[in-house]
Simulated scan of single mutants.
Amino acid sequence: MSASQLPQHPIGAQLSNLGSRWLLVLERTLPNAPQEIWAALTEREQVSKWAPFDPDRDLTETGFVALPEAGRRPSDDESDDTDESIGTVVTVAPQRMLSLVWGGDAIDIELAPTASATIVRLSHTFDDRANASSYAAGWHLCLTALDGLASGLDVPRMVGEDAKLHGWDELQERYEKLFGG
């Protein structure tokens, strides 16, 4: 599948200074019912197709979860216990909200149904302002993949190094301009 066949979303995010942390918010309207998006957000096999991490379980219950980088599973003789691979599911409100802590960052995904679609609001709270445009570009691609996956498309891997194949560099530059960096 080419990137042109994937759903397209305009550049759009908000960046707020919270004092010692930063809040990045991306909002997209997807043409799916909340239950379709919820399945993609929480079912392990679907999560790794759109998210930057590959959970070791479904995200339907609160508690610890291993969240290594998508597409990378440690072998039996190695562990993946870096900060980025450690996560906690904090909130599970089916078809409304999923909250995680991943590598020390808070990630909240809220769903709000409309008459014909669902508004997905992704909020990422992090420490270093210098990462804002990178995070925005990455989440932009992740939400594009989520949209495609929820719509039944065969979505290519668009995280890690594969993100560059789908326009991450240009997105990162455009978000940097948007944020005035």
Rank of each mutant, 00 (worst) to 15 (best):
S16G: 04
A145Q: 10
W102F: 02
R157L: 13
R72S: 07
E110A: 15
S99C: 09
R57L: 12
E110D: 12
E110R: 14
P31K: 11
E161F: 01
E78P: 00
L67K: 04
L6F: 13
L153V: 10
Q14W: 05
R157Y: 14
E27D: 01
P156H: 08
G104C: 10
P55T: 09
L30F: 01
I86L: 13
R121H: 04
H140N: 04
D76G: 04
G160E: 09
P68D: 08
A136C: 03
D162R: 14
A145R: 13
P34W: 09
L98A: 02
Y135N: 07
A106G: 04
D108H: 08
F64P: 02
Y135I: 09
K164Q: 08
A115M: 09
D81N: 10
D108S: 05
H124S: 00
W38G: 04
R28T: 07
F53M: 14
R73E: 02
G181A: 13
D105K: 10
L171Q: 03
L149M: 07
A39E: 11
S85T: 08
Q35M: 05
F64C: 00
F64S: 09
D58N: 10
A117N: 13
Q14M: 04
G167A: 03
E176A: 15
V47L: 11
S48D: 06
T82Y: 06
N131H: 11
R174W: 05
R121C: 05
M158N: 03
K49I: 00
E61F: 04
D56C: 04
D76V: 13
A145T: 01
T118E: 04
G148W: 07
E84L: 12
S134R: 13
L141W: 08
E61V: 10
F64A: 12
K49T: 08
V120F: 14
L111C: 01
E161K: 08
A115V: 14
S133D: 13
R72K: 13
T29K: 11
R57K: 14
K177M: 05
L141T: 03
L23E: 11
L143E: 01
V155C: 05
R57V: 07
F126P: 02
I37W: 09
P156T: 12
E27S: 06
K177I: 07
G152T: 07
E27W: 00
R21L: 15
S134P: 00
Q46I: 00
C142I: 08
L165A: 11
T144P: 09
T88V: 06
L59Y: 08
Q14I: 08
Q46W: 00
N131L: 14
F53Y: 15
S48K: 14
R157I: 12
K164V: 00
D169Y: 07
D81A: 02
E176T: 07
A93M: 00
T144L: 10
H166R: 05
T29G: 01
L67T: 12
A13Q: 05
V159N: 02
F126H: 06
T62W: 07
